[in-house]
């Protein structure tokens, strides 16, 4: 799944360590999510979206069309 966490994080001047600290996860977890090597659980995805004050679909993109569109 694609995401724009790296762009959102760097735009706020945060390190991976700082973002991980704010979300109670390790720096390695943030790095793996940013690199697209790990898809976070739904609770963590929501926490990430809330942290950036965005909707979850504004942060993550699974490349699928919205149903009914």
């Amino acid at each position: 799944m694609n995401n724009n966490i790296r762009a959102l994080r760097t735009a706020r001047g945060l390190s991976q360590e700082a973002l991980g600290s704010a979300l109670n996860v390790s720096r390695q977890t943030i790095n793996a999510i940013e690199a697209g090597r790990y898809d976070p659980s739904l609770p963590l995805a929501f926490k990430l979206a809330r942290f950036f004050a965005l909707h979850i679909e504004d942060v993550f993109d699974d490349g699928e069309e919205t149903l009914g569109s």
Partner: peptide, 14 residues
Amino acid sequence: IVRQFHRMDELQRR
């Protein structure tokens, strides 16, 4: 060891 697992985040558990 089980206690340490509970302290891990989701990627570390994976």
